[in-house]
């Protein structure tokens, strides 16, 4: 399939336009993060910084007591903790069921739909009861509480993705092993899980990304740097605590970086996951 000359010209023009729309806001964030506050509050706006100012990155990456950097880096640490915990727990809970959903397709479809449909429930629905539960268990302001709360979002999604991935693994392979007398646990370890490796990594990355994005629970259930996550830290900065746009931009860039790297790893999987995964569910 070849494009006509005008077709190619139009195509490239469209690509450049789309590229600019996506890149310009990102580029501006980067410029802001290294511009001086004076440049950023000059009218008319000064697009190119007169001198590069990396002080915000120093500030954010310092662990000095009670500094912005400490708040920020602790938030980063908490987010990683919550992301790992939520992912591991959701994965462990969802895997057996996903496998069954895949292998007993048809009979359990309604049940699967029920699980997936819980994704429709907004976090605001659970906030008040969860707050009281955590409060009575003395779990407020702990990463553990966030792991439990974030599972409300991650569990249905994990189940859905895993089920779709296991669907693609021929059941015959497992049956062959079963005839040899292997237990279900052994079959999983020897046959299913190795074959499901791509969908497992996709699921894990998606789950981490969802936790990285979570805001409401973190805002309500945490209160200080021992459990606060990165989105809360950023929202606090943005709500008038800091009038330095450069610092906001730098914090945003640093906090987004891990998510973007995960996103890049997911590029292929995103595609595969959504085109094959769960579609039939």
């Amino acid at each position: 399939m070849k494009l006509t000359r005008t077709g190619a010209v139009l195509g490239y023009a469209a690509m450049i336009l789309v590229g600019l729309v996506v890149v310009l806001p990102l580029l501006w964030m980067v410029i802001m993060s290294v511009s001086s506050t004076r440049d950023l509050t000059t009218l008319p706006l000064h697009w190119i910084p007169r001198q590069l100012d990396f002080s915000r990155y120093h500030r954010l990456l310092s662990l000095a007591a009670n500094s912005d950097g400490q708040t920020f880096l602790f938030a980063l640490r908490n987010t990683v903790e919550v992301a790992i915990g939520t992912t591991v727990v959701s994965f462990a809970l969802a895997l057996p069921a996903s496998w069954l959903f895949a292998r007993r397709e048809g009979r359990l479809d309604k049940l699967l739909m029920l699980v997936v449909a819980t994704y429709m429930l907004p976090p605001l629905l659970f906030v008040v009861p969860l707050y009281h539960i955590f409060s009575s268990l003395s779990l407020l302001n702990s990463p553990l509480a966030l792991m439990i709360a974030d599972s409300t979002v991650v569990l249905p999604f994990t189940t859905w993705l895993l089920k779709g991935g296991i669907d693609a693994i021929p059941a015959e392979l497992e049956q062959a092993a079963a005839i040899d007398g292997a237990s279900l646990w052994r079959i999983w370890l020897a046959v299913t899980l190795p074959l499901a490796r791509p969908i497992i990594s996709t699921t894990i990355l998606f789950s981490v990304l969802m936790v990285w994005d979570e805001f409401l629970y973190a805002m309500i259930f945490t209160s200080d740097s021992s459990a606060q996550t990165i989105t809360v830290a950023i929202a606090d900065l943005a709500s008038g605590r800091v009038s330095d746009y450069g610092l906001l931009a730098a914090a945003g860039i640093l906090a987004a970086l891990p998510a973007v790297i995960i996103g890049a790893c997911l590029q292929r999987a995103l595609v595969a996951g959504l085109t094959t995964g769960g579609v039939k569910g």
Partner: peptide, 15 residues
Amino acid sequence: ESLHDKILLSKGSAN
């Protein structure tokens, strides 16, 4: 902006 809601929410909280 969060101060009032945090105080209200913490009512009846064990910690």
